[in-house]
């Protein structure tokens, strides 16, 4: 049984008279101790999916199961347990912490509320333990500081510590390292990976950076979203080494790498158009077909492809990938 399962999740927002489908029929099952990265460009629905998984946003249709039970049908105490088990870490450590509370106040509030600590003294002891878990030392001193006295990286560690207070089984981390300086990003990622290995916390890690997804979720899976739909979902090595969706292949070919020889000799896939379609005026058929270099006329512009298993643990929603055996190589050998 999956820890958390999204079944045919759709989220629509109203924009005046228009209806915007931000997330369109997404299926995703997150296992115990698993790391899944959701990648995609802005507006692809990755954050909305993350918020629904964390229970912070209601879906328009579809079901969310936590340990096999529909969360909309949970009883009071069961819902509390679900809420404790699923936590979220936000992107911006400058606005996600209350500026007038000390770190101790921020960390101890959930400890006391959810009765993980019996009194203030116990809460303090536990807070120190948690801060040490996220490598915030000296924890004693940090506890009495305010967020503005900490650096961006330290604040993000406090955000993670706050999520850890309630012993969650699952953390949704939305661009959790993208506002932190490059030099300290790696240690944050390593710390999160350690929490996964040592405490067995599952992660849904949302990022626009595929290289980062590869690093963080190498033992896990990566999902690529485009215009609200999951277009490719696979075990990370298979996706990185042999992307099957032309959009994934295009993203990978477009990313500059921190190695001058490599980045200057990379094969580039040139798209037919640079414009991301508006969510209120999505093209018919496959949403990617107006940009796709390998589209099939009469098929891709008519029929929307469905996410289908193409190889072991590798799902893709693309007619061309379906048609060509070993489609990935064909796609990545596209035009320069």
């Amino acid at each position: 049984m999956a820890l958390l399962e999204l079944k045919h999740i759709t989220k629509q927002f109203r924009q005046g008279k228009k209806v915007v489908t931000a997330v369109d029929d997404v299926n995703l099952a997150i296992q115990d101790k698993e790391i899944i990265c959701l990648v995609g460009e802005s507006g692809c629905g990755k954050t909305t999916t993350g918020k629904m998984a964390a229970g912070l946003l209601d879906q328009t249709s579809g079901q969310i199961l936590f340990e096999g039970k529909d969360i909309s049908k949970l009883s009071g105490p069961e819902f509390m347990a679900y809420r404790r088990s699923v936590q979220m870490v936000h992107q911006d450590p400058f606005s996600s912490l209350n500026p007038v509370r000390t770190i101790y106040q921020t960390i101890s509030a959930p400890l006391l509320y959810h009765k993980f600590a019996k009194d203030e003294r116990d809460a303090r002891r536990r807070s120190i333990e948690i801060l040490e878990m996220v490598d915030l030392t000296p924890a004693e001193e940090i506890l009495d500081k305010f967020p503005h006295q900490l650096s961006g990286g330290q604040r993000q560690r406090v955000s993670v510590a706050r999520a850890l207070t309630v012993n969650p089984k699952f953390i949704v981390a939305d661009e959790a390292v993208s506002m932190v300086d490059v030099s300290i990003r790696a240690s944050l990622l390593n710390m999160l990976r350690r929490l996964n290995q040592e405490l067995g916390v599952s992660f849904l890690f949302i990022t626009h950076d595929l290289a980062l997804a590869k690093y963080f979720a190498w033992e896990g899976r990566v999902g690529v979203m485009y215009t609200g739909r999951m277009v490719e979902l696979s075990r990370s090595p298979s996706l990185i080494e042999k992307p099957l969706h032309p959009y994934t292949a295009a993203l990978m070919s477009a990313i500059p790498e921190a190695d001058p020889r490599l980045t200057r000799s990379k094969e580039r896939i040139v798209l037919r158009s640079d414009d991301i379609p508006s969510l209120t005026k999505l093209p018919p058929g496959c949403h990617f077909h107006p940009r796709c270099p390998v589209w099939l006329e009469g098929k891709c512009d008519k029929v929307q492809p469905i996410l289908t298993e193409m190889g072991p643990g590798h799902q893709v929603a693309c007619h061309v990938a379906f048609d060509i055996t070993g489609g990935g190589s064909k796609i990545s050998a596209g035009t320069r």
Binding site: Q154, R185, A186, E257, L262
Partner: peptide, 24 residues
Amino acid sequence: FGLTRAVPTLHGAVEKLESIPGSP
């Protein structure tokens, strides 16, 4: 040197990234 070791790449093997300790 530290910066070049702190950034992941998409190609090649997954190598352990190292942060630069401390802050600016």
